[in-house]
Design a binder for these strands. Structure first.
Length: 283
DNA sequence: AGTGACGCCTGGGAGC
DNA sequence: TGCTCCCAGGCGTCAC
């Protein structure tokens, strides 16, 4: 499941593999993959063809490639999306939805997505950020992320701290995996009410989130299965560094207590019953 | 305005 | 063996 680290690894691959190149051909073989492009697949193709990709940017889990037209190719990987840079003659995988060829005849860009929660679209504006993505907060690895504004905003919320971490308008890039990991490191239960957390506690949580995200980037992200891979098709290695996510029933690496699993927000959370006690009343 | 529930998707695995 | 059900979950939309 691509979250910030996985998306960042893909962004780096796009920067190496497609930036500076000019689009020659676009083939959309599944309209759903470009459903966010309101004007349709033909318009998507027309706006991309002949354009040069200027750079590769990311905010949270969104990627975008500014074009020399002033527009930008925006991508989101959803649950299972892949952006691959491969030779055009490479075998065509199942769930291949979009192919972008370049005028230099080199490797092509492919969008592959099993569950099609992700997608591509061409939108106006790319620098510094497309207006479409204005609602997405900066992420903790963004040099302009405002720590104290985040601490204040989180404490103004009246919700559980895990919900807050997953709210992309408050802080972006964190999904279920890294939320569980950051909470484990901070020894906080996800249902702890945000308005009752002290400023130092929120600062510690943010520092842990930042740490786990950057460590995961260095490990190439987390790959549970073949659904997440880099643009080169390589799996990430961070799974072996997970302390909480997906480890229910196994001993807490800190205290040895078996980790618990709870259903929460229609998703599963795992945490340590001893290190992360459940609040008396929580969300 | 802030908060939270819902639906979109597919494949793999469990259970019968 | 083959069927059904459940689960993974990011995010836009909508109701309150």
């Amino acid at each position: 499941m691509p979250e910030l680290p996985e998306v960042e690894v893909v962004r780096q691959g796009l920067a190496r593999g497609v930036v500076g190149r000019t689009v020659a051909t676009v083939r959309v073989t599944r309209d759903r993959a470009v459903r966010r492009h309101g004007a349709g697949a033909e318009d998507f193709t027309a706006r991309l063809t002949g354009r040069t990709l200027v750079s590769a940017e990311r905010r949270g889990k969104y990627l975008w490639l500014p074009l020399d037209s002033g527009e930008a190719l925006v991508g989101h990987l959803g649950m299972s999306g892949q952006l691959l840079v491969v030779p055009g003659a490479a075998p065509l995988p199942r769930h291949l939805h979009v192919r972008v060829g370049f005028d230099d005849g080199g490797r092509e860009l492919r969008f592959v997505d099993q569950r099609t929660f992700g997608g591509l679209q061409v939108v106006e504006g790319g620098e510094p950020v497309p207006p479409l993505l204005a609602h997405v907060a900066r992420d903790p690895l963004d040099p302009l992320f405002d720590d104290e504004a985040f601490v204040a905003a989180l404490r103004r919320r009246r919700t559980g701290v895990k919900r807050a971490l997953l709210d992309q308008t408050l802080v972006s890039g964190i999904g279920n995996i890294y939320a569980d990991e950051a909470l484990w490191r901070a020894r906080l239960h996800g249902a702890r009410p945000t308005e009752l957390l002290t400023r130092p506690a929120v600062r510690r949580l943010l520092a842990h989130a930042r740490d786990v995200l950057s460590e995961a980037v260095r490990q190439g992200g987390t790959s549970f299965d073949a659904l997440y891979v880099s643009t080169e098709g390589v799996s990430g290695l961070f799974e072996r560094s997970l302390n909480a996510y997906g480890r229910e029933g196994q001993p807490c690496p800190r205290c040895g207590t078996p980790l618990r699993r709870e259903s929460f927000m229609n998703r599963s959370s795992s945490s340590c019953p001893r290190c992360q006690p459940r609040p008396r009343s929580g969300r």
